[in-house]
Design a protein around this nucleic acid. Structure first.
Lengths: 251, 251
DNA sequence: CTTGACATTGCACGATATTACACGAAACTG
DNA sequence: CAGTTTCGTGTAATATCGTGCAATGTCAAG
């Protein structure tokens, strides 16, 4: 075990756990506590962590690295959301799926837009409560906590009574052959149903979702109307999605 | 558990709850009360909190003076919410109305509580998405943006299919003769319906709501099971609410 | 291959910090 | 005013810390 390797591990533990206990970590590493203490002292000297009795805490009160990565991801999603918001015409009925990208979409709806937004995501509903003119229709049901969206038969029933012009769908996998997929069976069923009730389905996909596949199938790629993604991606990643039936938008 | 971690937690609890009880916190942390008292003394020495008999309060007579009636209000609501959370028995079906006080209630539900929470407030739903064991049933409908709750016939229909054990209602007016009132007609109708579908209605009221009345009537005071309010209010304010049918809880 | 400078590590030991318990004082409650 | 709870201090046990030092390993010059 190299010293620098160990120091890197220390910082990783701090990022992930938010703390490190010298005694435990020394046993885990198979070295003496003295060694760990020395590492901690040195890292603290470089300002990379905060030394406390019994171990160490991250230098910044909160998770600096994690936060910054979130922010970087957020700016890409904000750009996607902004572009998608411009695709909505006044008077349309729009279904907004859950997910952080769609929250960004909701945040960037023009203030003067008059439209109806239907959503089964309480996060989206809360976001849109600030909007002056959009009418919000909340779809109820059992809350699927991981994605924070309503699912189940109650949701399905409510959705089946709605006809939307556009559906902005979130998905974890967008694959040229496998199609659109996500990680939960119930969620997949609901997404599929919403798509069938909507005239056009639009998917906002960040880079890591392109070419990926998750366990549960939602719909084939052929049924997707528009795929919105960020500009500057390598052509070989986009090539499989260039077809006559799918509109590919890069922003 | 590192000492400095524990101290950080103490300050976090003070920010969120507005107070800390030494005995409870020591049990939660699994250390003796002496240890907690020592922590409190030391933090008080640094001016980071205010030591009081039985625990501690935020160190902000100065801060409270400066800006935030909101913060003081938040701590009062947190206390109401905490007390209300303890009134829920495992296995019960509980309806949570919207409002900031009920958000505090949701935040303070014990982590090991197994119950079903029904709500027409997306804010509450988002808050409860973090809870590990509570099942959340979201009631859909048209979003009333001012209060951020779902209203309308869709909501009414969904609510009429539910029977709840408890209903924690928010209201802007609690008057001994006028009864319970709020500022919107639709909202009043929905609240009234939920109350009829629930075995017991509980109202959390901060001081300014007692004795106040708003335009739209929800229900008579006689139909309220429990009124929860803060301790230390003048007796003449509470006297009108002391009756055989109403349980008055001061926290 | 040898040798010496240097880094790393584990161990010893005195110093400091943390904790729980005990007991009288103070505060709260009815 | 009596009973109970909480507080503060003292104390002893334990845990952790920092430093000095010797052992081992690394590496490059001789």
């Amino acid at each position: 075990m190299l010293t620098s390797e160990r120091k890197a591990l220390i910082q990783q533990v701090l990022r992930l756990d938010g703390r490190l206990i010298a005694k435990d970590f020394s046993q885990k590493m198979g070295v003496s506590e003295d060694t760990i203490r020395r590492d901690l002292r040195e890292l603290a000297g470089e300002g990379l962590l905060q030394r406390v009795h019994g171990g160490a805490l991250p230098a910044s009160p909160a998770v600096a690295d994690f936060g910054s990565r979130e922010q970087v991801g957020a700016s890409v999603k904000a750009r996607l959301g902004q572009a998608a918001a411009r695709m909505i015409q006044p008077g349309q009925i729009v279904f907004l799926d859950g997910g952080t990208t769609n929250v960004q979409l909701a945040r960037h709806l023009p203030d003067d837009l008059r439209a109806v937004v239907v959503t089964h995501s309480p996060s989206i509903a809360v976001e849109l409560a600030r909007h002056p003119s959009v009418e919000v229709e909340l779809v109820g049901g059992r809350l699927f906590k991981h994605s924070i969206v309503a699912v189940g038969t109650t949701s399905a029933e409510a959705i089946s009574r709605i006809r939307a012009d556009l559906f902005f769908m979130g998905a974890t996998g967008v694959h040229p052959e496998t199609g659109i997929t996500t990680g939960d069976r119930e969620e997949a069923a609901i997404k599929s149903l919403i798509a069938r009730q909507s005239a056009e389905t639009i998917i906002l996909a960040t880079r890591e979702k392109l070419g990926a596949a998750s366990p549960y199938h939602i719909m084939p790629l052929a049924d997707v109307g528009t795929l919105v993604t960020v500009a500057g991606l390598p052509e070989e990643l986009l090539q499989p999605f260039r077809s006559s039936s799918l509109a590919l938008v890069e922003v």
